[in-house]
Design a protein around this nucleic acid. Structure first.
Length: 750
DNA sequence: ATTAGTGGTGTTTTT
DNA sequence: CACCACTAAT
């Protein structure tokens, strides 16, 4: 390995000789990687292409810094975007070091902000038990708010307000700072202010609030700011291209003028603009901090030549780039395989067939990934896989902590921690049914609104009369009892108690589809036990949070609540695994977004159709298509050796059949890299692959609208045979599918 | 008060 | 299709 460095002309002056211990971890790096890892204590930007060893450089740098005594674990803050990436980082750093990584801050932006806010909740103006809202919770809070203010949901859809609020928070703007000129935005801004007040009353924060609040805390509080600045001399950021304005501002605040920010990113893989990420950060960072220390990593160690060439060609269609081309010495490899399916089911059948044949060639299922643009597309694929009995694993969609029954249980737990949590209160007041319906809840909401108190207080002060009142009183008793008993219990015991005593278990027991739900509740107890035992790997080391600070908040308060709060925060921030777990013997299904950072021997990209990928909604957005193209770039670069691209002419979507043309991205890949796949697939139903279609000139083509004298209007779904034998499958608007012989049927093109 | 049923509507990606 | 909000019936 060493000769390789020399061959590339590595200049030995830097470190290998000086730091003998670390030479083994450095020896395997290429010259650019080595240069990045061993940079002096300055801010730097590492532009690292897909598969160029980005995370490796980052983690090796941390290990190197520590091993060479330039910093202690305590002085390192490493932040990324997803939980999976954070965990990965921690694992890899730990593997390289012989000393404990405790005391090192590694996590997501949200996780780290949460940690800081917990430690200094009083300075941040939050209750000790503050809870975190996920987007679902946030939306229901907004709906409740709009209702209580009698705002017309037609004119102000909750979704729009949610976007408005999050967008402004991500930009670092409180209501007072929002510039609103027209009536509509003015009203939205007012509602934003009301929303924040409501959150304050309930003691809850949304995702963006975690960041904004933390930023404000550090801005306002000089002692804390200088404390953390003194502490974190090395700040490392992974996936820098995905940081939002606010996250960037937070980093700058933390870095001050003396600390170094080591930012690793790839502008070509920026796919989170929709959530406030701003590639502008990269440009700005380079100007402000990196002044010159920019290193590009362009050697790709993952994909074979033609795959890489396709990815490069595609991304060249984007205009806004820093400019960077990947290369490999891994050889040309195979061409990409394109399959045009007739229907989505046909596409699934094709993929299934290829998966099987790959498996028989010895490619493990876990080394194959099936990617799509949106979660809804997994249905058809799952259907086919399920019927074939092929093991598969779907990531995304409904996550564990987002399931209805789990959320119900969590709501009870939140009420144990803080009964003023209106969201949780409203959610489970009548689950299971206690005879307290809409009306009673509405009454309570009115009372709470008038008096400016929480639902809980409103309910305690004057419970409704009659049967509903009994239910409310029962509910209050229940919560009081749980709160009492919780004092003596461990976290998993408390969770078990809540599930039983609340009646949730009984409720699902009597439901038809309740089996799985009860299993999930059991699983929640397990999750609590696991959390209790290990704590959250990424939020542990509570110990060293505020060393050297005037004794204030850190250790104050009820330790029991700390465990519960920690668990609830964990549930909100991690929502359950969502990113792939390596090594499982199953075909991996996921969106392109969640595939980022992963790699597989074989990758299938399905649904490459206009309207789907690129998605319709992106076409109207500024730079929307460029972002979609970057997404496609991410998808392509997941593959090591084999890459399939497929699209279908017709697809069931939102309950109706759509006719799609092939994605523009297919055309943007040079022809010579593409090979046809699966020419004669006997496919689902009576469908036949499009390559059996007689001639291009024939009016009888798939997708053609036709009229039949008896069946009326319809559309051709498949064509089979030629000449006098030709038959077509037509989907009639009124009577559904019919197979017709062209020679006899009096079919007319419409 | 609760439930079942209806009709209208909107849909990307994630911490 | 799936989720909602609303209505009618229990």
């Amino acid at each position: 390995m060493r000769y390789r460095l020399i061959r590339h002309g590595y200049n030995r002056q830097t470190c290998i000789d000086r730091y003998v211990i670390s030479s083994d971890i450095l020896a395997r790096l290429n010259p650019q990687q080595l240069k990045a890892v061993t940079l002096p204590h300055v801010s730097a930007l590492i532009l690292a292409g897909a598969g160029s060893g980005k995370t490796r450089v980052l983690t090796t740098r941390v290990a190197w810094l520590i091993q060479t005594g330039q910093v202690g674990p305590h002085g390192v803050l490493a932040v990324t975007f997803t939980n999976k990436a954070a965990r990965e980082m921690l694992t890899r750093i730990s593997a390289m070091l012989t000393i404990s990584t405790r005391g090192m801050w590694v996590g997501t932006f949200h996780g780290l902000c949460n940690r800081m806010l917990r430690a200094h909740y009083r300075d941040a103006g939050l209750p000790q038990t503050f809870q975190i809202l996920d987007s679902q919770d946030q939306q229901s809070l907004i709906k409740r708010l709009l209702k209580s203010l009698n705002v017309d949901e037609e004119r102000f859809p909750p979704r729009e307000l949610q976007y408005f609020i999050n967008g402004n928070k991500e930009a670092g703007l409180r209501p007072a700072g929002v510039e609103a000129y027209d009536e509509h935005s003015k009203r939205l801004t007012e509602l934003y202010a009301q929303y924040d007040q409501q959150c304050g009353r309930e003691g809850v924060v949304d995702f963006a609030e975690l960041l904004l609040r933390c930023h404000e805390l550090l801005t306002r509080n000089e002692i804390l700011r200088s404390h953390y600045r003194r502490r974190f001399s090395h700040i490392l950021v992974d996936e820098f291209q995905d940081t939002s304005r606010l996250q960037y501002m937070w980093l700058k605040l933390l870095a001050g003028s003396d600390n170094a920010i080591f930012a690793v990113g790839d502008d070509d893989q920026a796919i989170y603009a929709f959530r406030g990420a701003s590639a502008q950060n990269i440009f700005e960072f380079e100007r402000e901090f990196a002044n010159g220390s920019l290193i590009k990593l362009e050697q790709n160690y993952r994909s074979q030549g033609q795959i890489l060439e396709a990815a490069n060609a595609l991304i060249h269609h984007n205009s806004k780039r820093l400019g960077k081309d990947l290369w490999t010495d891994a050889g040309k490899g195979e061409p990409l395989r394109v399959y045009e399916a007739v229907t989505d089911a046909d596409e699934a059948a094709f993929i299934l067939q290829e998966v099987k044949s790959l498996r028989s060639e010895g490619v493990p299922l876990s080394e194959m990934a099936l990617l799509y643009r949106s979660n809804a597309q997994s249905r058809v694929l799952e259907h086919a896989l399920f019927n074939a009995g092929l093991p598969y694993r779907v990531y995304g969609g409904l996550r564990f902590f987002e399931r209805q029954e789990v959320k119900h249980a969590l709501a009870y737990l939140r009420l144990v921690a803080n009964p003023e949590d209106d969201g949780a209160f409203a959610r489970v007041l009548n689950v299971p049914a206690r005879g307290v319906g809409h009306r009673s809840l509405g009454q309570l909401q009115d009372t709470s609104q008038q008096r400016g108190v929480s639902l809980w207080q409103a309910a305690c002060a004057n419970p409704p009369a009659g049967k509903a009142g009994q239910g409310v009183i029962g509910f209050i008793r229940l919560l009081e009892g749980l709160h009492q008993d919780s004092l003596a219990l461990s976290l998993p015991e408390l969770v078990a108690l809540v599930i039983d005593r609340s009646g949730l278990r009984g409720y699902y027991h009597s439901e038809r589809e309740g089996k799985d739900r009860i299993e999930n509740l059991e699983e929640l107890i397990n999750a609590a036990a696991a959390f209790d035992a290990e704590g959250d790997a990424l939020v542990r080391a509570e110990d060293s949070v505020s060393v050297g600070l005037p004794a204030q908040d850190a250790s104050a308060g009820d330790p029991r609540l700390r465990g519960l709060n920690g668990f609830l925060a964990h549930a909100a921030l991690e929502a359950g695994e969502h990113q792939a777990i390596p090594g499982q013997q199953a075909l991996q299904l996921m969106t392109v977004h969640s595939a980022k950072g992963l790699e597989f021997d074989a990758v299938f990209i399905s649904g490459l159709e206009e309207g789907l990928f690129p998605h319709d909604n992106s076409l109207n957005e500024a730079d929307g298509v460029e972002e979609e193209r970057r997404l496609m770039y991410v998808a392509l670069t997941r593959a090591r050796r084999r890459l399939y691209l497929s699209h279908a002419q017709t697809r069931m979507l939102h309950g109706q059949t759509r006719y799609n043309i092939a994605s523009r991205f297919l055309r943007e890949i040079p022809e010579h890299l593409l090979g046809r796949a699966g020419g004669k697939m006997p496919s689902a139903g009576h469908m036949v692959s499009v390559y059996a279609v007689p001639s291009a000139a024939s009016p009888w083509r798939v997708g053609q609208d036709v009229v039949h004298p008896k069946f009326g209007p319809g559309v051709i779904v498949s064509v089979q045979g030629r000449g006098s034998d030709a038959r077509v499958m037509v989907n009639f608007r009124r009577d559904g599918m019919k197979e017709l012989a062209l020679e006899y049927a009096k079919l007319v093109p419409a």
